[in-house]
């Protein structure tokens, strides 16, 4: 799969890598059971530390998107159903929302209050 990183971005390199894998899972270009690039290859190609890539993969595992197994590498979870995909997409939007709020000086607590206020 294609991965681009921008060292000048305020977003960390691991976050950038994780975000692109997440996006690929959401838009369906990565399907359940697909193998992610071997961390060593991807790290060498992007000229980043291998642990940066592994950190990205570990974050994706914690979100329940990929399976990480020693000796087998990282695979997109094959039991990832459509509702899970939606949830992944929603989480990404929440993250974007948090970023946007932070940029205009709104703390996460204030954001939660904003959301409560928006409830009918």
């Amino acid at each position: 799969m294609l991965i681009r990183v921008d060292p000048a971005s305020p977003l960390g390199l691991a976050d950038q890598i994780a975000a692109q894998v997440r996006a690929a899972v959401i838009d369906g270009s990565l399907r359940g059971g697909d193998k992610l690039p071997p961390a060593r290859e991807l790290a060498a190609a992007l000229d980043v530390n291998m642990h940066t890539v592994l950190r990205a993969y570990a974050a994706l595992r914690d979100e329940g998107i990929v399976d990480l197994r020693r000796g087998r590498g990282a695979h997109v979870r094959s039991d990832l159903a459509e509702p899970d995909r939606e949830r992944v997409a929603l989480r990404r939007e929440v993250r974007d929302l948090l970023d946007r709020a932070a940029r205009i000086g709104i703390t996460p607590e204030e954001l939660v209050n904003e959301i409560r206020k928006a409830l009918p």
Binding site: M1, L2, I3, R4, V5, D6, P7, A8, K35, P37, P38, E41, L42, A45, L46, D47, V48
Partner: peptide, 10 residues
Amino acid sequence: DGERVAWVGQ
């Protein structure tokens, strides 16, 4: 020009 990009497949 300076963007780092890679593609890995098997």
